[in-house]
Design a protein around this nucleic acid. Sequence first.
DNA 1: TTATTATATTGCAATATTACGATAAACAAA
DNA 2: TTTGTTTATCGTAATATTGCAATATAATAA
Lengths: 107, 107
Amino acid sequence: MGASKSDSFSIEQNEMATLFKALSHPARIAIVDYLLTVDTCICGDIVNELPLAQPTISQHLKELKNANIIKGTIEGTAICYCINPDTIDKIENHFGMIRHKLKNKCC
Amino acid sequence: MGASKSDSFSIEQNEMATLFKALSHPARIAIVDYLLTVDTCICGDIVNELPLAQPTISQHLKELKNANIIKGTIEGTAICYCINPDTIDKIENHFGMIRHKLKNKCC
DNA sequence: TTATTATATTGCAATATTACGATAAACAAA
DNA sequence: TTTGTTTATCGTAATATTGCAATATAATAA
């Protein structure tokens, strides 16, 4: 088939899968890394930082934005992209839950 | 093209992307969830828990194992799969780093 | 108005993923 | 041995992802 049976899983499971999918490509990890090293949030020069064409980077940015991992605000002609700390919190909480449940396990 | 330009990114970036890709499907999130709710680690019955055929689940387990998110040890005819806490640590550390770097940002 | 600059969208080819039936492999029990 | 039980692999169809050239859009500058 190819399409995932997302109906069969919980909303929470689908949400987490969507977040991880947004982070599942090295270019998108690199974009997040870059956003974290730049002092200001003005980030139109990501194109110069990565070995990918502008449309490809625009596409990766869109996926990160759709997943709420970054947010972008228009700043004249440029766009200011930056990390959305709320989503980072969400992912951290998920792993906190995993860590908590692991405490009582045999592994 | 379709293939990602993994050569162009750092080893660390590729590693994290691989980990997130392993978690980027609701069925694999559900498998991790299930492993966390079961007291013992004997997990051959995941097939009964998820609405997917046995070969599909075997494939998802293989991907989780390749990414070191779970480990499996042979237990007679069955296989005991369980979470690999080391990999959970690795992911948590990554977000710890993100959180740390975010402290000084404008977002 | 006409550039110029920054970003997004479209369209398409190459590749990867997902799902499952059929089958194989490995092992225990009868 | 044969039978059943458990897990893995093969083959294949349906779908999704990736990357980029070409083009479009939007805002500013001249």
